[in-house]
Every structure is written in structure tokens, then in C-alpha cells.
Amino acid sequence: MPKNQKNIDAQSTDCLLRGWIIGTLSEEALGLVVGLDTAHPIWTTLKYLYAEDSQEHDQSIGEHIRIFKGLCYNLAAIGKPVPDKDKVFYFLTSLGHEYETFTTTMLKPLRPSYSELISQL
């Protein structure tokens, strides 16, 4: 099989898988993967977000920040940027139970900006 044909087959397969995954998602879950181009990052994101007992949830705060920034970047890339105040709220509410005290403190009035929040973590 020619190399070009293999690329076309791989793209077709990925498109089909992406369609199957997206076709099964709720509107809420779909919002979490908007802007992700291929099946692999969509699956990885969903696995991270919904696999409670997975080692993926035991990731470092740095990895959590990286994933969150990536999601915000993807939303901005499709013309749906997340306002700074919303980023602070969404990020804080996405942290695990081990950050509950920090989250409660940061959600009080006079919330920090998103960049201030990240630097405090």
C-alpha cells in the first residue's frame, strides 16, 4: 500500500473514532473536548476527567495546570475564550478534595486573577 494511502486510511479511521466518541457525549462532556482535533486527545481528556480510580487522577498540580491551560487555549482557538474570572472558578472547582481548603479560601470575595492563582499553587 502506498504511503499516501496509509495516511488517508489513518485519517479516516481517526475521523470515524472521533465521531463515535463525540456522538456518545452529553452536552456537558462535549464542552470539555471542544477543539481537540483527533480521537487520542479526546479519549485521553475524557479518561482523565472521568476515571475516578485511575492513576491519572494522582497527577501533579503542574500536570493539572497544563491540561487546564490546554483546554482554555483550545476554546480560545475556536473563538470561545474563557474570561479570567471564569477560569479562576472553573480551575478551582476542578481541583481534587486535597485542595478543598485552598479552593474555599480562593473562592471568597476578592478572588485572585487566574495568573495570581496559578502562581500561588
Rank of each mutant, 00 (worst) to 15 (best):
L49W: 05
L16T: 11
M106H: 04
L32R: 05
V33P: 14
L32H: 03
T103G: 02
L75S: 00
Y73F: 12
E63L: 01
L25K: 09
E52S: 11
H40A: 08
M106K: 15
P112L: 13
Q5R: 11
K108P: 02
L110W: 07
Q59T: 10
I8R: 12
D14S: 04
Y50D: 07
G70F: 02
Y90P: 04
Y114A: 02
G70Q: 02
G23Y: 07
A51E: 15
V33M: 09
L110N: 15
V33C: 13
H57C: 13
T104W: 03
L95R: 03
S60R: 03
L95N: 08
P81R: 01
A77W: 08
E98T: 03
D84F: 01
A51Y: 10
D84H: 03
A76C: 08
I67T: 06
E27F: 06
K69D: 14
L36A: 02
A10I: 12
V34A: 11
W43R: 09
A76Y: 06
R66Y: 11
M1S: 09
E116T: 09
G31N: 14
G23P: 15
L75F: 01
A29P: 01
Q11R: 11
Q59P: 04
L117E: 01
I65M: 07
D84W: 08
T93F: 04
T13H: 00
E100W: 04
K69M: 12
H57F: 03
S60P: 13
P2Q: 06
L107F: 07
S115L: 11
K69P: 00
E56W: 00
S115Q: 12
F102P: 07
G70D: 09
L36I: 09
D37V: 04
T24G: 15
K69R: 14
I67S: 01
S54G: 11
F102Q: 05
N74I: 02
S119V: 15
T105S: 07
I8N: 03
K3G: 05
I42F: 02
N4G: 06
P112A: 01
E116N: 14
L75T: 05
P41Q: 06
H97S: 14
G31M: 08
G96S: 15
E27Q: 13
S119R: 14
F68M: 06
L107R: 05
H97G: 13
G19P: 12
A77D: 06
Y114R: 04
I42L: 12
D37L: 09
G23F: 11
